[in-house]
Design a protein around this nucleic acid. Structure first.
Lengths: 194, 194
DNA sequence: CAAGTCCTGCAATCGGTTTGCAGTCCCGTC
DNA sequence: GACGGGACTGCAAACCGATTGCAGGACTTG
């Protein structure tokens, strides 16, 4: 019993809906319908905004599915077109379930302070892209577009953390805004002599 | 002599132009005009498209400036508005010098195969963003927009590597395209018993 | 030119991601 | 329903971009 889900009696408990489409598409490509895959999709189904691998891992219960398995499956599912991958530039990929409703072209508006994510419809007309491709001789042109700003709640917030001047995107020149990252990296402090 | 640049007799050789603006702006914020900073800006000045920290390091000659110093300085220079940070989603940040000519709002068109970068002017009208901000109650809204496709040269190429189906961005749904990454990660193979 | 800061190189470390390996599970077949 | 092979998983090692403590060196100011 190495398959983590099987450490629990009923890994399939996590699945709430019939997954006929998943089943069909997996089998069609000679892949297998595992409890982990169903559970991952189920987590995504319950969340409106895109999740990181770690968030999926946490939501699943860490014992139910190894993080590496999630990484591997997000690749597979992205390849199969069951999920979409987004990147908000904070260092971790995010994934969103592809459903009939979400399959349309859309982007996101992300709060620079609290990282809340709002789905938005706004985009330029597709002719722009066609023309761009033609002008530069590129083929199969796609784009990535994300919006960043300060959400209503964070605007009222009395600036818990001092507003980093870099985040405000002083002049919109197309440069990449920076999401909040309160990480502790680097070397640990040396131990003091006793 | 720990300052790497000074291991060479004339680190300042790398500097080709007077850097009065850099000097003024650095001193104005009680920072220092170091050979490394001048050299970094000089590298950026000689390159049209955005460079990664590693590319800057390579261009400088690895002995001339430590990679960590480059990371630190790119932060500083970005904060000061002397360079702009871009992110094409391939896992490493890229930096472009802010000059009078490049200070205008612009984006990039990146080849999914060879990663060549073309600067493009195309963007939606600013009213879009204003309206978006108003509708969702967000403030200081900015955006990140990059285009991906297959450059003219790579279209003719007889597909040296089998064209990864994922990269073609099959239907443009706003999802993040994936840049080529031929990395070797993960665990090393176990040594076979002799 | 001396003192105070700011910076740098070095190396350790972090978070995100990938991968080899061996054991497990899924599923078509008998 | 048992069987077998290929797909998949957990585990842990390893990789990568990036960050940071520390001690010594470089810039500035006076």
């Amino acid at each position: 019993m190495n398959n983590a889900c099987s450490q629990h009696a009923h890994p399939h408990r996590l699945v709430q809906q019939p997954l006929t489409e998943l089943t069909d598409r997996l089998r069609a490509s000679s892949r297998k319908v595992t409890g982990q895959r169903q559970a991952i999709l189920d987590v995504l189904r319950r969340h409106a905004s895109p999740l990181t691998n770690r968030q999926i891992h946490d939501a699943l219960g860490k014992a139910d599915c190894d993080l590496a398995t999630i990484y591997r499956n997000m690749h597979t599912l992205t390849e199969m077109g069951l999920v979409k991958r987004f990147d908000f530039g904070d260092g971790s990929a995010r994934f969103e379930l592809v459903t009939d409703e979400s399959n349309h072209h859309h982007h996101h508006l992300v709060c620079n302070r609290c990282a809340i994510i709002v789905e938005v419809e706004d985009c330029f007309p597709p002719e722009y892209e066609t023309e761009l491709a033609r002008r530069h001789g590129f083929a199969s042109v796609s784009h990535r577009l994300e919006f960043f700003g300060l959400c209503p709640r964070c605007q009222k917030e009395p600036a818990a953390e001092p507003p980093p001047p870099g985040n405000a995107a002083p002049a919109s020149t197309g440069a990449t805004p920076v999401l909040p990252q309160q990480q502790k990296r680097g070397r640990k402090p040396a131990k003091v002599a006793p």
